[in-house]
Design a binder for these strands. Structure first.
Lengths: 124, 124
DNA sequence: TCCCATAGTTCGGAATATCGGAACTAATGC
DNA sequence: GCATTAGTTCCGATATTCCGAACTATGGGA
């Protein structure tokens, strides 16, 4: 299990961000990470829309978001916590993420790609 | 040779735009269409950066941009003229295209994906 | 009208990427 | 030790991309 890889802020490329967010599932996960106080475990995502996502696919989605520079992932014991890197990305590419997230929000009227949270087990 | 297909403005989806522009070649072509007075023939693109693009690939790039709703293509005799649909897309997804184009422009310092125009033959 | 040149599309196969089930690792608790 | 939970990795099936070659469509001569 190799360590989690994060690009430095000046290594982040627009094409990687666009590719990562061109998948509506990943865009929904990323939007959710920002809404949910910037922390979301992989296991907190059960489904996007009405489609259940297998965990190998979820793991890969988080990897793509991470390696695009959109999130920062840290292992905490057995789980991984994901933080949005919005502020860093916004500083480097002003308006990029807002434009994308707003565009998805605009098109939600026709096709809501909302993340359905899995009930988090007795973690308190 | 089937007719050129353009989505209606309310059929344009953010994921299609992001996918289309997540390819630096296509992003460079699109940026060039906007810079060059919103008209550019397929044959006017010879290369992006130092990489020559075969015309079957170019044809496909224009198709992806067109079907994402980013450009409008019209046949004029033997050639095709491409117009940016910036204004329409901006009206539906404010800030999206500006954010993307600016992001690529920002990262140009490290890796310029500029379109090299082919000399247009005696077309006047 | 026939022929040619030009602009662009379509075909098809190789290379590449994505998806997801099954097996695996790593941490924690009993 | 064994079980459970969280997540990753492996790998085969499927889908996508790339690009050379063949094709189509238009316009312009002779």
């Amino acid at each position: 299990m190799r360590p989690l890889i994060h690009p430095a802020i000046d290594e982040i490329r627009p094409e990687a961000i666009l590719h990562a967010l061109s998948d509506p599932n990943r865009a929904a996960i990323f939007a959710n990470i920002m809404r949910a106080g910037c922390v979301e475990a992989c296991s907190a995502v059960a489904a996007v829309g009405d489609r259940v996502i297998p965990k190998s696919s979820l793991s890969n989605h988080f990897k793509v978001l991470r390696e695009a520079g959109l999130i920062r992932s840290e292992r905490h014991g057995v789980e991984v916590r994901n933080h949005s890197r919005w502020a860093e990305v916004e500083a480097r590419f002003p308006g990029l993420l807002a434009g994308i997230i707003n565009a998805y929000a605009t098109s939600v009227g026709e096709d809501p790609p909302l993340v359905q949270d899995r009930a988090i087990p007795k973690s308190s």
